[in-house]
Simulated assay, not measured.
Amino acid sequence: MAMKLSEYAKKLGVSYHTVWRLWKQGQLDAYQLPTGTVIVRDGEQNPQLVHEIACIYARVSSSENKDNLKRQADRLVQYSTARGYGIYKVVEEVGSGLNDNRQKLISVLNDKKFNVLVVEHKDRLTRFGANYIQVLLTQTGRRLEVVNDAANDKEDLMSDFAAVITSFCSRLYGLRRAKRKTEKLIAELQSNSEESCN
């Protein structure tokens, strides 16, 4: 199916500028009409010829970094295209790398329509437990590809550190309250038990 370059960018979930650059670098199967419109031959190739179908996952910790999120996704699209991967979809998410309930990531992990998950850094996927995700992907015939193994920026790490402290504090105080409730419940049960014996 052929489509305009702008439609192709929208389908991938990346900026028009990114796909324009890919076309100029000769990395897209596309042609230009005399009017100047660029047409991408998307899906016209035999799917059997594309061995690697990539799902791109980009993440930042806070909405203040949304510009960085878009740039991160654009870099991953360029990387995947340069590697010759077919791009299934681009997923962008705002949330802490410590949050183990990120809905978009869960959706990606449940999706079996790709065979390589491409992330820029391991901590873009998760701060802890990336190896567990790697094992999960391997069990389902997929794999994780990390573009850059270098550590990520300090600001994002500090944000996650603050989230860890907050989480532990709330759990600690919650556990104390839960312990008091349990002790109260046990006392009531013992009291009721003693009364029924008398």
Rank of each mutant, 00 (worst) to 15 (best):
A2D: 15
K4L: 10
L5F: 03
K10P: 07
V14M: 05
V14K: 11
S15I: 01
S15Q: 14
H17E: 15
H17N: 14
T18K: 08
V19H: 03
W23D: 11
K24C: 07
K24I: 06
Q25N: 15
Q27C: 09
Y31T: 08
L33E: 04
T37Q: 14
I39R: 10
I39V: 15
R41Y: 06
R41P: 00
R41F: 05
R41H: 07
G43N: 09
E44T: 06
E44Q: 03
Q45W: 11
P47C: 09
L49R: 11
H51K: 10
E52G: 08
C55W: 09
C55V: 13
I56V: 02
A58R: 05
R59F: 02
V60M: 05
V60P: 12
S62I: 07
S62T: 13
E64C: 03
E64Y: 06
N65P: 04
N65G: 05
K66V: 11
D67Y: 08
D67L: 04
N68F: 09
L69E: 01
R71G: 03
A73Q: 03
A73S: 01
D74Q: 02
R75M: 10
Q78W: 03
Q78F: 10
Y79F: 10
Y79C: 05
S80K: 03
S80M: 05
Y85M: 02
G86S: 08
G86I: 01
I87N: 06
Y88N: 01
Y88V: 02
Y88Q: 07
V91S: 00
E92P: 04
E93L: 00
V94T: 15
V94N: 02
G97N: 01
L98A: 05
N99W: 07
K104A: 12
I106E: 02
D111E: 04
F114Q: 05
V116T: 04
V116L: 00
V116M: 00
V119S: 02
V119I: 01
E120Y: 15
L125I: 10
L125P: 03
F128D: 11
G129E: 00
A130K: 03
Y132N: 14
I133F: 06
I133D: 04
I133M: 14
Q134P: 01
V135Y: 14
V135F: 13
V135C: 04
L136M: 15
L137I: 09
L137D: 09
L137W: 08
T138A: 13
Q139A: 04
G141Q: 09
G141I: 05
R143T: 14
E145I: 06
V146I: 12
V146G: 04
V147M: 11
N148K: 08
N148Q: 07
A151W: 11
N152I: 13
K154G: 06
K154R: 04
K154D: 09
L157Y: 15
M158G: 02
S159L: 10
S159M: 10
V164M: 14
S167P: 01
F168E: 15
C169D: 14
C169R: 12
L172H: 15
Y173C: 09
G174C: 00
G174I: 02
L175R: 09
R176P: 03
A178E: 08
T182V: 10
L185S: 02
L185R: 07
L189K: 12
L189T: 11
Q190I: 12
N192F: 14
S193L: 10
S193I: 07
E194I: 03
E195N: 10
C197Q: 11
C197P: 07
C197D: 14
C197A: 14
